[in-house]
């Protein structure tokens, strides 16, 4: 039983929210804890069928990106985590996207429990907003200022140097 299941499970099929199917290598899929969990569960049951994992929260264009990331990182999985080449690739990877895509990718990484991608996205977002003014951040992310003037002043007041 064990031998037959291992061969049939070298690949899984992932379905996006807009009903596109993606055939994914098991090693690549394991980069996502969500997919890995599904695979592990099925393996325990000893099924011989091809596993189909529906992801109701991720559209196909975003899923393509997540899988691209997972593929690259699966290649480096046995390597040192601090690999310079991989870091460079990560940076270039995220640089291509607009903020809307970045938002969806971050949410997808969270949903699919791909921790390294989630952290990467969050760090990238943090780096890209760190030198912006509050107004600029609101404008870029289309966020409404919902503070009362008093509340805003209170937070602003934290920006003081205290001496002793």
């Amino acid at each position: 039983m064990a031998s037959s299941s291992s061969s049939s499970l070298s690949r899984v099929v992932v379905k996006s929210s807009d009903n596109n199917l993606f055939v994914v290598n098991k090693k690549v899929a394991s980069q996502s804890q969500l997919l890995k969990q599904c695979i592990d569960n099925m393996e325990e049951k000893g099924t011989n069928d091809v596993i189909l994992i529906p992801l109701s929260n991720v559209t196909s264009n975003i899923l393509t990106l997540v899988l691209e990331y997972c593929e690259k990182h699966a290649d480096f999985a046995d390597d040192d985590n601090n690999n310079q080449e991989l870091k460079q690739w990560d940076h270039e990877f995220l640089k291509k996207f607009d903020y809307a895509t970045l938002n969806s990718l971050t949410m997808a990484a969270d949903y699919m429990v791909t921790k390294s991608l989630l952290n990467l996205c969050c760090q990238f977002i943090a780096d890209s907003i760190k030198d912006l003014t509050v107004q600029q951040i609101r404008q870029i992310f289309d966020i409404k200022n919902d503070f009362t003037p008093q509340e805003e002043a209170d937070i602003k007041n934290e920006n003081a140097w205290a001496f002793r």
């Binding site: 989630l118 760190k130 912006l132 509050v134 951040i137 992310f141 966020i143 200022n145 602003k156 920006n159």
Partner: peptide, 23 residues
């Protein structure tokens, strides 16, 4: 995600800016 982004900021000033965006 809000928490992780704010945790990735490097200075107090950046955190204040972040907090001022919205409630």
């Amino acid at each position: 995600i809000i928490y992780i982004i704010s945790k990735s900021l490097k200075t107090r000033q950046q955190i204040i800016q972040f907090k001022r965006v919205c409630k």
